[in-house]
Design a protein around this nucleic acid. Structure first.
Lengths: 356, 356
DNA sequence: TTGAAAGCGGTACCAA
DNA sequence: TTGGTACCGCTTTCAA
């Protein structure tokens, strides 16, 4: 058994240096040591220096739980992901978003707490987050249409920033979003310009706000050119590879097959590509494909046909910005809501060609 | 300003119901209320029932920071991801792993804390995690060859489970890993059986332990058939789309182009597919591709040529198991290290065909 | 410039 | 079966 294992009440714990021990070692009071380490001005430079050296040498780090109990600040941010039994998989861009946010938090000394919440017990879960007090604020992921979490969180007084937006919400709230409607509108316009008329949309679940906005953009562009949206060319499901495979495989075999596909995620696109291949077709020639959330930055300066997308690195940047917004809200809780709309990039690729 | 905002010392906080208030409301002592809520047997059923009702009605949740300070347990698990300035992107399977682990934690009442650690200040970071005491144990991600974090963590006495393994470590430690060596060996054998002799390997960075094992398996299979590994057919880089694109584009144009590619990640594979398409080639006919970490479960019962892979859902399951191992270690810190080796699945697809 | 002491919100020992 | 009280490790007020 390790030497620093000891029994505390009913559990086994490991001993670490604490403030009391450090101050005794230095022959100072806890107060002075605490002040020295936290940069209070009233401590003499000699003392501060001595304390800092000792703290470093003895590898002292303050206990975060005690500190937050005493200050009322946990110095942690929660990222809340709604999950259901149907879709346990996490959108792969989440990793990039959290990495971007993490860089910001690290700089400001915040920890990241991930909370997966099942749809069923949602309300209680948010109240519990609030009452547990283990985070100072949260980032809400995967907002739905008319998401009632926003009213709840506002009422709870827990600072929050929504990654995405929720439509039809009366009261103002903070959010950061990609301009999904505009992105899909431009992508659709682009395909129309290439002569496509049967353009399919492989969307995410339309209960999700972003998916709704994407469809809006798509339909707006079609209608503006006098093309009426064909329900047979629109799918809306959990964004998985198998969905992309089946949807593309099915649609592309039909008599009036689409000549172009608008795909909502790089994961769906993997399945789409496989289906296209299985059918002996070629992308960019037999069928044009535009994928959102793909990482095409390396094709930026190519000479091919344009593709439309939000890249993985832009998601990373979005995470960093969302984190900054939230930290700002936490510093001044009475300030007005912040909002930020990000435009997706236009990128050159080869999966998109003129209609044949 | 919300009604429940008040000033506590120097910061603005929001008021929530606490144990003291709840017990006063009930006319009981804090002790009794605490015992009633935590399932201690000595409290009468009548009292317990009354307390539980009131707690629910008043939406009381214990303050996690105070609780952990008092118990010495934080009821939180850290997931530690090494990052560097070069590769800020997170492997997309991380999301699935954390979702799997999260389900286990939720069941046992644990929170998830994500920590991104820069390579440079690694040692101090782990010591700080330990001293801060905000987690009861950690899952270590992305182990490198002969990773010195393992010795450090063992010495620190912080319970941990490694997702993956580190080679050349003397002392035993807990880990959970996919059998990467065997997976790539079987995949290579399979391609050899199809008549391929120039098989390329697009690997992850070989400082990573998993990548090293994958190359080992690949070379073992080649040598067993008398094929000597060709350095010109082996690449080792950060697993990105652009890397897959460039490597495939480059190799497939050469005089002695590979007839098959072994690809270490679905993200690399996206780039590979794009390169194959750009060159006017067809996967499964002109070049065979086998991708690890891809989600091909929907092709399982097809009639095509086999593909070799660890699916996203298997990563999800691995996360759940790693979490269970860690929780077990935490319950009994003096127990022996646990290990678990997972075999990758064999799946039927179309990207792999005989050599031409 | 330093220190003593009273919290922060719980848990768990001891006594009743 | 219940309650009083001493912690857990830190911050911050107040006094010296």
């Amino acid at each position: 058994m390790p030497h620093n294992l000891y029994k505390f009440k009913t559990v086994w714990l490991y001993q670490t240096m604490n403030l009391k021990q450090l101050s005794q070692h230095l022959g100072l009071s806890q107060t002075t040591v605490s002040r020295a380490l936290n940069g209070y001005p009233e401590v003499s430079e000699t003392t501060r220096d001595r304390v800092q050296r000792a703290a470093h040498a003895l590898n002292y780090s303050p206990n975060a739980r005690a500190k937050s109990l005493a200050t009322g600040r946990s110095h942690a941010i929660g990222h809340v992901l709604p999950v259901s039994d149907q879709h346990e998989m996490v959108n792969p861009i989440f990793g990039d978003f959290i990495a971007g946010a993490g860089a910001t938090y690290a700089r400001e000394g915040y920890e990241i707490v991930i909370t997966l919440i099942e749809d069923r017990k949602e309300k209680d879960a948010y109240r519990a987050i609030r009452a547990r007090g283990s985070v100072d604020g949260i980032i809400v992921h995967g907002p739905r249409m008319a998401d009632d979490r926003i009213a709840l969180l506002t009422q709870l007084g827990l600072p929050f920033v929504v990654h995405g937006r929720a439509s039809d919400i009366d009261s103002p709230y903070s959010w950061l979003d990609i301009n999904n409607g505009r992105a899909f509108q431009r992508a659709t316009e682009f395909l129309l310009d290439l002569g496509h008329r049967r353009i399919a949309l492989l969307n995410g679940r339309e209960s999700m706000d972003f998916a709704h906005r994407r469809r809006d953009g798509y339909e707006t562009a079609l209608r503006a050119r006098g093309v009426s949206p064909d329900p047979g060319l629109m799918r809306s499901e959990e964004m998985t590879e198998i969905y992309g495979y089946r949807a593309a495989h099915d649609m592309l075999q039909r008599a009036q097959a689409p000549t172009a596909l608008l795909v909502s995620s790089m994961i769906i696109a993997i399945g789409v590509r496989r289906a296209v291949q299985d059918l002996g077709l070629e992308m960019g020639r037999d069928v044009s494909v535009i994928t959102h959330d793909d990482d095409l930055s390396y094709l930026k300066n190519g000479e091919d046909v344009p593709l439309f997308t939000a890249t993985r690195s832009s998601v990373h940047a979005a995470g960093a910005q969302a984190a900054e917004m939230l930290l700002q809200l936490i510093q001044s809780p009475a300030s007005a809501p912040l909002t930020k709309l990000i435009e997706a990039e236009l990128i050159i690729g080869r999966s998109t060609g003129p209609a044949r």
